[in-house]
Amino acid sequence: MDYTIFAVATFIVALLVFGGVFLIRPRRSEPPQQQPRQEEQATADSGTAVAEPTETESAEEPAEGSGAVAEAEPATPATAEPAAPEVETPPPSAGRMVRLRSRLARSQNVLGRGLLNLLASDKLDDDTWEEIEDTLVTADVGVESATAIVENLRTKVKVLGSRTQDDVRQLLREELLTQIDPNADRAVRTRAETDRPAVIMVVGVNGTGKTTTAGKLARVLVGDGRSAVLGAADTFRAAAVDQLETWGNRVGAPVVRKDEGADPGSVAFDAVARATEDGADTVIIDTAGRLHTKTGLMDELGKVKRVVEKKSDVDEVLLVLDATTGQNGLRQAQVFSEVVNITGIVLTKLDGTAKGGIVLQVQRELGVPVKLVGLGEGADDLAPFDPETFVDAILDGE
């Protein structure tokens, strides 16, 4: 009895154990690739594929060929290095005025032809000679120079007697050259006698082309194989400083500058020091455009010169005059000559006026030669003044 009960109990326990193992055994999971296939199908239907990053792929860089679209970080714009200005090689100064003669001839043709026609007239009476003198005065030759020219011509015509066109032209040519003085020293001192850079100050009122002249002069020097340093001492006008730096960059001439409103004497002094350190041939100092009616500003110009002279002698003081201003330009020259020792005149815009007689008048009044002339707006239109080329351009035309 007991044995039977024990057997039945054992059977029941075994049955329960076997059935429990079967019931609690976990169901076999789906193949790992099945779920991704379902997601891929779902995203394909929507037209957008989403890829999870792997160990070798970042979330910002989707796998190649997966078709995944990911938002990338905005690219940092590259900062381009500013291009260095191209350094130009200007032509030499020799022969510039000859090459620019046609421009001068066009502007001076009225003066030359008018004089030649009057002198070649059949009757050279007092009225004709007076008209000749008026023509000269109108051309800004000046009363004293015009009177001297007429008196000398009257004497020569009376002595020679002949008044052919060639004779008249030759007489007038000789007289104009005498008044201009072809033997005057017109060389710009761009090299000092001692072992130091030559110092050139460029002065004049605003509007005459002063800063442009300083830049063009640097081109002349570089074209002649010299080295130059520019001093931007016109510290009252930022535009003038930038303009001068542009001229310097074009020919590789260093420019010494300071902030707007800085002491111009300090800039000029530093420019001379820089030229000395670099072993440059010449330093060109562009000064502020002084109004000749302002005594204080003129005094300051004298101060700039004195400050420079603490470092070096000043070899040239070039006064820039606008040839079209006539008598006003002459008054400017007189005032400037009282403040600083003017050594030479630069006449700009000489191609834009028929009043080229200012060349004669300014030399007669100041005893200072015209050394440079501006015959156009081009970078290389500043030329050493040549009296014979000037007179021939007046008389011959094109």
Rank of each mutant, 00 (worst) to 15 (best):
41 Q>A: 10
49 A>F: 15
71 E>W: 12
97 M>R: 04
57 E>V: 10
55 E>I: 06
45 D>E: 15
70 A>K: 01
76 T>C: 03
40 E>M: 11
65 G>Y: 02
40 E>G: 11
96 R>N: 04
47 G>I: 13
72 A>D: 10
68 A>C: 10
75 A>E: 10
108 Q>V: 12
38 Q>P: 02
110 V>M: 02
65 G>A: 15
62 P>V: 08
70 A>P: 00
109 N>G: 13
69 V>Q: 08
45 D>T: 10
76 T>R: 14
64 E>F: 11
105 A>P: 12
52 E>F: 07
81 E>G: 14
69 V>E: 08
40 E>L: 11
100 L>A: 02
85 P>G: 07
38 Q>M: 13
79 T>Q: 05
74 P>Y: 09
79 T>N: 02
89 T>V: 12
64 E>T: 13
61 E>V: 08
64 E>D: 07
97 M>I: 05
73 E>C: 01
55 E>H: 02
76 T>L: 14
93 S>R: 01
51 A>I: 03
59 A>Y: 04
84 A>S: 09
86 E>N: 06
76 T>Y: 15
105 A>D: 06
65 G>S: 08
78 A>S: 12
77 P>E: 09
51 A>H: 04
63 A>P: 01
102 S>H: 15
92 P>E: 06
61 E>T: 13
51 A>Q: 11
66 S>E: 03
50 V>N: 05
91 P>S: 14
105 A>I: 05
42 A>H: 04
63 A>K: 06
63 A>N: 03
84 A>E: 09
69 V>P: 01
104 L>H: 05
100 L>H: 08
43 T>M: 03
91 P>Y: 10
84 A>C: 01
107 S>H: 09
67 G>S: 06
104 L>G: 05
44 A>Q: 09
94 A>V: 14
80 A>L: 08
48 T>M: 07
104 L>Y: 02
45 D>H: 06
79 T>P: 00
69 V>S: 12
79 T>S: 02
71 E>P: 08
72 A>P: 06
103 R>V: 04
50 V>E: 03
110 V>E: 07
70 A>I: 00
62 P>G: 05
62 P>Y: 11
80 A>D: 06
43 T>W: 07
96 R>K: 05
45 D>I: 15
55 E>G: 06
85 P>R: 02
58 S>W: 01
49 A>E: 12
52 E>W: 14
101 R>M: 03
74 P>C: 12
61 E>I: 15
62 P>A: 04
91 P>W: 11
57 E>N: 08
85 P>D: 00
101 R>Y: 01
94 A>L: 12
98 V>H: 07
90 P>I: 01
113 R>M: 13
92 P>W: 00
38 Q>A: 14
98 V>C: 00
65 G>E: 08
82 P>C: 07
51 A>C: 11
106 R>E: 14
43 T>F: 10
68 A>W: 02
42 A>T: 07
79 T>K: 01
105 A>C: 08
73 E>D: 09
66 S>R: 05
43 T>A: 08
93 S>C: 06
83 A>E: 15
55 E>K: 03
90 P>L: 12
102 S>G: 11
38 Q>D: 13
50 V>F: 07
87 V>Y: 00
44 A>N: 11
82 P>S: 06
44 A>M: 15
100 L>C: 02
